[in-house]
Amino acid sequence: MMKAWKHVFKLDPDREIDDQNLDAICLSGTDAIMVGGSTGVTFENTVDLLSRIRRYELPCVQEVSDMESIVPGFDLYMIPMVLNSSDPAWIVGHQQQAIDRYGYMIPWELLVTEGYIVLNPDSAVARLTDANTSLDISGAVAYAQIADKLMSLPIVYLEYSGMFGDMELVRTVKNKLNQAQLVYGGGITDYAKAKQAAAVSDTIIVGNIVYEDLEQALLTVSAVH
């Protein structure tokens, strides 16, 4: 399913979006909606957002950041492994706890593991996961190849979260991958940046601009399709 996605809007359950703006996002032509966030995500606000998105005919996936906020009814569940975290809990620890607790009821066929590489030191996700963000291109490529070649993960996710990243780094990582799909997220605030990011990755994730400038957010779809 996800291999065909070129553009995904990411909505944060902890941020407000009115019905009119949600309607515009869901009818924009994007390939899917991802629901998730680094902080403030709860079962209640995730259920609420999912129920509103489900009025539309498009795939909806949950990026799981907290086991307490996992909600049944999504088409897929994205499971991040933050490969450049200094804390092993963000690589396998939280996942082990979740499987230990909920393994008997996990729909394994709906889980997709993401090899996350967090690259913005000022982002909430970098602080939360204690990520080593001071990577040069070869360092980022090495993490990506661990995900792609050693771990056979289906997705490598370059996460700049709030800033527009180094497109030469993204391009180089893309060229070094064998089977993994390269997903890029961070700082896509207009048509031009969406075009640049889409040219060097398989899938772009557009998030913050949805809440700051809806018109620019909608233009990112036409940049890709």
Rank of each mutant, 00 (worst) to 15 (best):
150 L>F: 10
157 Y>K: 04
91 I>H: 14
75 D>G: 09
165 G>M: 07
3 K>P: 03
124 A>Q: 14
138 S>I: 08
112 V>C: 12
47 V>L: 10
213 D>A: 13
137 I>V: 15
225 H>F: 13
77 Y>S: 10
155 I>A: 11
166 D>C: 05
65 S>E: 02
189 T>Q: 10
193 K>M: 03
213 D>E: 11
42 T>H: 12
74 F>C: 07
74 F>D: 02
188 I>R: 00
3 K>W: 11
195 K>N: 01
159 E>G: 01
83 L>Q: 02
130 D>P: 00
59 P>V: 09
152 S>P: 05
88 P>S: 15
145 Q>P: 08
193 K>I: 08
46 T>K: 01
137 I>F: 03
84 N>R: 12
147 A>D: 02
2 M>N: 05
177 L>Q: 01
113 T>C: 14
84 N>Y: 10
27 L>Y: 09
105 M>C: 14
37 G>W: 01
126 A>C: 11
87 D>T: 06
82 V>A: 06
95 Q>P: 05
35 V>T: 10
122 D>L: 13
163 M>I: 15
104 Y>Q: 12
101 R>G: 08
91 I>N: 13
96 Q>A: 15
146 I>V: 15
212 E>R: 13
138 S>A: 14
140 A>F: 09
93 G>F: 12
141 V>S: 06
154 P>R: 00
124 A>D: 13
220 T>E: 06
178 N>W: 11
209 I>G: 01
35 V>M: 07
162 G>W: 03
91 I>Q: 15
